[in-house]
Nucleic acid binder design. Sequence first.
DNA 1: TATGAATGAGCTTTCATTCAT
DNA 2: TATGAATGAAAGCTCATTCAT
Lengths: 244, 244, 244, 244
Amino acid sequence: MESIKKSKQELRSEETKRSIAEAAGNLFTERGYDTVTMREIAKEANCSHTTIYLYFKDKEALLEQLAIPPLQTLEAAFLSVMNEKSLDPTGKLLEISRHFLRFCLSHKSMVTVIFNVKSVRVDEVNPAGEVNQLRNRLFSHLTESVNRIIPAETSEARINHSRVYFFVMNGMVSTYLNSEEPLEPLLERIIPLLDQSIEIVLLGIKHKLEQVQNPLKGQTKGQKDKEKSKKDKKQKVKKSKIEG
Amino acid sequence: MESIKKSKQELRSEETKRSIAEAAGNLFTERGYDTVTMREIAKEANCSHTTIYLYFKDKEALLEQLAIPPLQTLEAAFLSVMNEKSLDPTGKLLEISRHFLRFCLSHKSMVTVIFNVKSVRVDEVNPAGEVNQLRNRLFSHLTESVNRIIPAETSEARINHSRVYFFVMNGMVSTYLNSEEPLEPLLERIIPLLDQSIEIVLLGIKHKLEQVQNPLKGQTKGQKDKEKSKKDKKQKVKKSKIEG
Amino acid sequence: MESIKKSKQELRSEETKRSIAEAAGNLFTERGYDTVTMREIAKEANCSHTTIYLYFKDKEALLEQLAIPPLQTLEAAFLSVMNEKSLDPTGKLLEISRHFLRFCLSHKSMVTVIFNVKSVRVDEVNPAGEVNQLRNRLFSHLTESVNRIIPAETSEARINHSRVYFFVMNGMVSTYLNSEEPLEPLLERIIPLLDQSIEIVLLGIKHKLEQVQNPLKGQTKGQKDKEKSKKDKKQKVKKSKIEG
Amino acid sequence: MESIKKSKQELRSEETKRSIAEAAGNLFTERGYDTVTMREIAKEANCSHTTIYLYFKDKEALLEQLAIPPLQTLEAAFLSVMNEKSLDPTGKLLEISRHFLRFCLSHKSMVTVIFNVKSVRVDEVNPAGEVNQLRNRLFSHLTESVNRIIPAETSEARINHSRVYFFVMNGMVSTYLNSEEPLEPLLERIIPLLDQSIEIVLLGIKHKLEQVQNPLKGQTKGQKDKEKSKKDKKQKVKKSKIEG
DNA sequence: TATGAATGAGCTTTCATTCAT
DNA sequence: TATGAATGAAAGCTCATTCAT
């Protein structure tokens, strides 16, 4: 597409760049950004460490350029699922969530480095502009997918409820981020957990909403107790300042 | 109380140690153990980096001493709540969860450093022995508190369901860990979110169990669709290998 | 011989390594291993201290690599002399001693660092294994060369007498080790001193042995006095505890 | 003597100074100057490390002040022996040599630090003035004691011959300086070696001089061979440039 | 394009020394 | 007099990065 014919040199050059990116990706993923050295990347990529600087301005740029394509691919996957006619909103949310979980666990460095605002310094001239934009779009896709399912009450309630979804997602990613289990078996094992968790959360939200609309029905003893104890909750919160 | 009179020197010394601990805690939290330097800690604590070594053997000891007492206090709080006669199991879980959330957000360094297994190297001779033991006990207290609520089905189901609780907790902590909002207002704001999230999860689990026991009742359309779509889920998982 | 053509880079690299080794050797010699810093070595070698680490794993490795090849060359010289048919035992000892003195004064660092047991730590896992082996072999070559000359009396007497040789050698090395005179003129000047000293010692030993075999002949007045004074020597030794 | 009455404070102060000096002396002796820290000295002296600075300007001054009294004592011992009527010159030399050896081995730090010119910086304003003067006087006493024994030939010959004595002394000190054997047993063991070595050297010198005066008598085969081989000695020296 | 050589900044840690009480 | 608190200088070493070929 881009060029009908590439000289051997060009091909070789591309291959070098690709192998550097692959090596860096693997190492960042396995051991995080900070602990990986340029020389290690070079060794893994079978080139000199100085060669890396021919293709990437510096270590941080390497990380960024490494991040953008996967994020774009992820967004494409999100959009594809959202436009899938054969799935209902819940199905779409599940599928998107699976994509998201898989992405985070297969690009570990991105979770810590890109999703943590701090590490991508904002004090530079638009250093991670594209990355940030992508990040924001991804989150809004997720939010939208959740909101399509939860019946519209007051927008405040809806927002609060949708947060539970994010907590679960964030929690799953955090929980399995440092797992040493190989990716595929790990996913095979935890995607059912993801499905189940989302199912539970949606079910919980549904019944919570029903409860609010019809407060006398379906309460368990625990719930009633809780209701009672709500009176002094605030006080409890205060009391629990256990640390200096 | 502790001592009637403290010399000015003693006070100064205590203050220095305290400010070092605080600075280290904050910095570890924000940027992790490895990337924070002793000189940075010293700068933040308004002292020379060599002064740190007067109070802490080395960087690792600084981390450990930072961690142990709060963790012990947290465990004491856990036990106190668990023995509280006036609370039902749900109330206990809520209260424990609040303690846990408050702890994580007020000791941010511990979340990244201690709860992430990697950072506390395991290849050394009992490097963080006491820390690890504490950590394990805390988790077992949480697990137990959850299990007291969820009706005993198969133990597998129970374990899986209780995981949702952990995902939510972990997710909340991760979400607000980097918040720059001051601690107390933040907690004031998000503890209702915590209560609500746990409530939703427990409600979801309860109804999920009922569903399983009585599979025909109470299904929503979304649920049925999901059921249908389960057939090709595995295939989907395979298909979604979107990255090399 | 070794390679027909060397690139400029190779030459530069070799020159750098050589100048580092030279600088380190000189400084170790003058001020000992511990007090010399990597930065000082670098300054003397006209390079950055980090450059040293390109050529030597660490400071200890620098020391070792500095020591082994010269020690091997020295042993080769020893063996060559010892197998030289045209020299009688005394001639061999003289020649070997000259080699030894030249070596010590032209590799000053090795005298303090290698011949002083302490500096090469023994508490590590075989830290200077090869160096120690070489060292031991060298000393046994020297011992053997001395023993070929001194007529075999009781082995104890022989050992004691041969020690005088070592004291002289060690003393000469110590005396001229810190000389600032250039090596060649210095050697030109002191090798006659060495020859003379060994000659004197051998002559002394010879006559001492004769004396013992035939105790009445050839005593000087001084000797007789000494003999007399031997009675209270032990007491003198005790008396001479002049320091607390 | 110095003051008829000392206040309790003065006594206590002197005691502190003494205990610091003792501690420093012990540690310097055992482990050398560089490796001993001020805090260690303080610990050994049962005081704070800051207290040391009340009595000694700095670490180097501590070492110096530590050195002077023993050196003075040593000189006094030298003079006492030299004035001893009951000893002949050889007996005096032996006794002085014993004192000297004992001193060096019981004040190890002084050997390396004071007898090695380098370590006592000369670029300061008379930093070690008294120490240097003492040092020089001690050496001249030794030289004189040797010269009283060796029959006066040409002064050049005398000087050269007397050097052998210094080589032996220097060699013995160097050899046993780092011995880990306790001092007293060590001395008990090596003072006979010292006596013997000096005896041999004096005997050797005596016969050497006789040889020179009467060159045909008393040559051994080895000596003759050596004489023969002298022709090409210079050439040998040249040839033995074995190192680059 | 590619690389080996070289470096400056910076890391953790130690130590002699000064400050303030 | 005596001391705990605090510090600057400097150690060995690593790493991302630039230079020269």
